[in-house]
Design a protein around this nucleic acid. Sequence first.
DNA 1: CTGTTAGCGCGTTCAC
DNA 2: GTGAACGCGCTAACAG
Lengths: 345, 345
Amino acid sequence: MGGLLIMEINKVTIHDIARALNIDSSTVSRALNNSSRVTEKTKIKILEKAEELGYQRNALASNLRKRVTNTIGVVVPRISRHFFASVIQGVEETAYLAGYNVLICQSLEQLERETKITETLVANRVDGVLISISMETTNYNHMFRLKNSGIPLVFFDRHCNIPETNNVLIDDFKGGFDATQHLILKGCKHIVHFSGPQTLEIYKNRYEGYKAALKASNLPYKEEYVVSSRLMELDGTNNAKKLLKQKLVFDGIFSANDVAAIGAMKYLKENGVNIPKDVAMVGFSNEPTSTVINPTLTTIDQPGLEMGKVATKLLLKHIKNQKKQISPQTIIMDSKLIERQSSKK
Amino acid sequence: MGGLLIMEINKVTIHDIARALNIDSSTVSRALNNSSRVTEKTKIKILEKAEELGYQRNALASNLRKRVTNTIGVVVPRISRHFFASVIQGVEETAYLAGYNVLICQSLEQLERETKITETLVANRVDGVLISISMETTNYNHMFRLKNSGIPLVFFDRHCNIPETNNVLIDDFKGGFDATQHLILKGCKHIVHFSGPQTLEIYKNRYEGYKAALKASNLPYKEEYVVSSRLMELDGTNNAKKLLKQKLVFDGIFSANDVAAIGAMKYLKENGVNIPKDVAMVGFSNEPTSTVINPTLTTIDQPGLEMGKVATKLLLKHIKNQKKQISPQTIIMDSKLIERQSSKK
DNA sequence: CTGTTAGCGCGTTCAC
DNA sequence: GTGAACGCGCTAACAG
């Protein structure tokens, strides 16, 4: 009956292998899982037949049966932001070493998407979740649901005020304080603050650090020196525009986020404005763009890679000790003030 | 027996709901899937009970049974590269509208990881895969396996030479040609080319475009004007260093990738070197860094967002028509030469 | 060491 | 409209 060769694709199961070899499917299953309870000889026979038939294990069935997926989910606002990309890198490295897969999800700073994502992660029975909440997230219902689902959970960088949770954070108050103080020591007297969304703890804390540093040096705090942004480059541009229009006198900028700072710096540069002596920023880790703008930029370094690793280790610990009720933990990571190398001219 | 409240978490199934309501689990299943064959009244009753018990559907079981996951996988070299992040954005938008989830994976330019990823995607029975291959990928075995698994497959941007596949590409030859010609029209006579890994078709094509443009204008092609990079910023820095050391005369650069170009531009700038009149680049889409370096930069725009959408639509078409053997397709997207706005000084 | 049995949680036939 | 029975592919428990 020569003619079309119809391939039964993706349909070979352990039963097919078992039938072809006249053994039981459970033996095949054991062999494929490299159990010690199968002879080396039959193991080889089975693996060869599996290869021959083009067998591809069905993780869905396996995971359903085992009630474990060996997968963790990581939720970030945007994967394109350098800091979060670094975190993911750290998460993947650590997870893979421990034999876990990683599901990468981005909320795009939208509560609705974040909610949907958490539901999907639960539905897919991930073994644990790492999350940095969106700036829209002021309602924590979905987080409570996630927590109550029994899936171990670790917040990193942007946490939310839920009792009894795991957090991996940076000391943002100290970061804001150090950044501002650095400017003061450089001689700045009128320091502008680009703040982030005050719905997020981290930006509140950076702002508080800014105020505290001013106070510690007996510099006046003025409301008009604080301009907010929604973490977009355009916000920074507009902020700069606004500052110039108001003819505000300033000699330093402490930006709580990199993106807005970049927008502002570009605008100032393009308009031939005297750029402040120095600018300190909090909110990024080795962001490549920053050194382009101004090689003398000073930054508070957020160690994304390291944070990803630390958070993942904490999560894995909780996954492995799910029976024993180990108590939640908050890890505060150190942040350093880094002076970028200045350009040789 | 007052004391600890032990919650049976994440264990409520449709059977629990059925038992609580004295109905059959199949009815519950139908209700949860909003089947028309259930009374509105019992439907509400079921939904309420589900909510009350904290029911969370098990996607593993559901997908296993349905033999469909409503999930597509997208594999990119690095999620942090702006172009790929844009593509992913386009993919997600299109996929979500069609009711699909997206699994984001990064190969980190490593063949080994790419191979593992494709295996995982097959094991998890994704309904389709979008992929841009790593620069290490010269052996296509894993791609053949993926293709033979019967899962619809679309290559985007970086494809590989496998017959009978779907591709969504940019006309890189034209891009290279246009970029070079643009420099020539601006008066450049000695144009350096930063090339990408020649294992990838796209970089080969851009290189060919460069050569063709020189030829078309009767400019000599010189081998020493071509320096290669592995798409790292450091490569660009080293390239620039090398050029200066060789005291090569050049008045224009056509870079086949943005990252190396950025490294080079930084180095040149920092060393007070006369930057060539203009630089044309291929290989990125609205990369924010580029405008910072040089506001008069001209670029060949790679529309990442659009490419993600187009590729996803093509993939979904193939997923939906899996029975009818629709033939593979290659879509070439248009790329435009874009002059960035110059700075007002 | 290997086979047998019994589900994991859900969706889909059938009947009624 | 609803219930009973079966099976998706795999693995755990228990025999032997």
